[in-house]
Design a protein around this nucleic acid. Structure first.
Lengths: 219, 219
DNA sequence: TTGCCTGAAAGTGTATACAATGTTACCATG
DNA sequence: CATGGTAACATTGTATACACTTTCAGGCAA
């Protein structure tokens, strides 16, 4: 195929996955709509092989359902789904900050502080897009501090779920300072190596995030 | 290929995945060993396509690491990994029993009771293999009661992680009645619709399971 | 010897052809 | 008219060929 329109040096399967992911999260497919390999292949002008690879990726992300010998079906995220995701994320993030404190050395705490400073900067600049990224990086940094590949993997997945949905509606968030403060509270608890306080702060933050997401959802 | 040795009506990719899964969990590959598509394809006498599909499945299960343009690498489970898995599972199971209670109707509770009875039977018969299955079914029943496909999915995944490892060493568990009692406690709390007690019981059960797994690991 | 270039070999990424399976519509039969 | 079977079609599963990327060994120069 001519690859002009799909720039980037990742594999075709990744690009296809990206396109389909966006389509699904933007509601361009009906809930339960069948995604035919042939149709998408001819639409995107690629062969079926990268399509199949992409389907497998999306299945891992729960964005499609793959039934052997039958095909691939689109799955949307309902408000309940989002609520579930935040609920699961909440309990794992509480576990994560505890683990992070166990493994925390001065160096990683310093890095985390730096990341928090970046968030403050973005908040002051009211730079939404950058704050979103800094926010994710902050959390991801905590994930890695757990030294547990399973915790990293599961939380990364859930973070990705929310990511796309956020881009859409981020600008409706007016309470940026509040968001910053929630992260600052998490940081302070980690710095003080207070597991209970950290878990409380993380739990509170996730609850608030869920509320904000809910408010945005209805529009 | 001649499909005599691989009976069953699932797809080739599924069979390949099953074979590789067993090999990895039985330690037949070195930690980090590269799994070359060509080599495995000629070994199993299938083409590379189902191999690739199988790799994607195993990547989802964290049993291999897939690096674009480089290949697929085997991943073992260390004792720390197992400990992590139980820790994550613990907090999600606590959440799950709470959600299950929220959605519980008399019918599903009756079903759960029946499953518990089956476990008691298996315990009395000292039928290890059947108890293992009944145990998983009991938990899975609770997962479904949450009515959350995300909770079901993530817990199912973690359950699968542990499954294979258990088969090996199940017979070293002498404390079958204890295991039964832990499940019975979970059931009673659900029946009484006592979220706190249920979460406590589930947490205790997972902690004990982790301990038992640890004891078995060292052999 | 060390460092860098280069090219061949190995391996992954993609496309396409063919096989197997599932789906559907139509016709025959009760 | 309802129902079951069957043939044609659509779609997924698998194999294979080719293209692209990575890797690594050998040679050449500093």
């Amino acid at each position: 195929m001519e690859r002009e329109e799909y720039q980037g040096n990742q594999s075709l399967a990744d690009e296809v996955a990206e396109i389909l992911r966006n389509r699904i999260l933007h509601g361009e497919y009906e809930m339960g709509e069948k995604l035919t390999e042939c149709r998408i292949a001819s639409e995107l002008k690629v062969s079926r092989t990268p399509i199949r690879d992409a389907f497998r990726q999306l299945e891992k992300e729960q964005l499609v359902e793959y039934i052997p010998n039958k095909g691939c079906f689109a799955r949307g995220f309902s408000q309940e789904d989002m609520s579930d995701i935040y609920a699961v994320r909440r309990v794992i993030e509480e576990l994560a900050v505890r683990r992070a404190i166990e493994h925390a050395d001065d160096d990683s705490i310093a890095q985390l502080k730096e990341q928090l400073e970046l968030m403050r900067f973005c908040t002051e600049q009211v730079s939404y897009e950058k704050l979103l990224q800094a926010n994710e990086d902050f959390h991801f940094m905590i994930y890695r501090m757990t030294h547990s590949r399973f915790i990293v993997q599961v939380l990364k997945t859930y973070q990705d779920y929310v990511h796309q949905a956020r881009r859409e509606t981020l600008k409706k968030d007016e309470d940026l300072p509040e968001i910053y403060e929630e992260h600052a509270a998490i940081y302070r608890a980690i710095e003080a190596r207070d597991e209970e306080a950290a878990a409380r702060a993380a739990g509170y933050h996730l609850d608030q995030s869920a509320c904000r997401a809910k408010k945005r959802w209805v529009k």
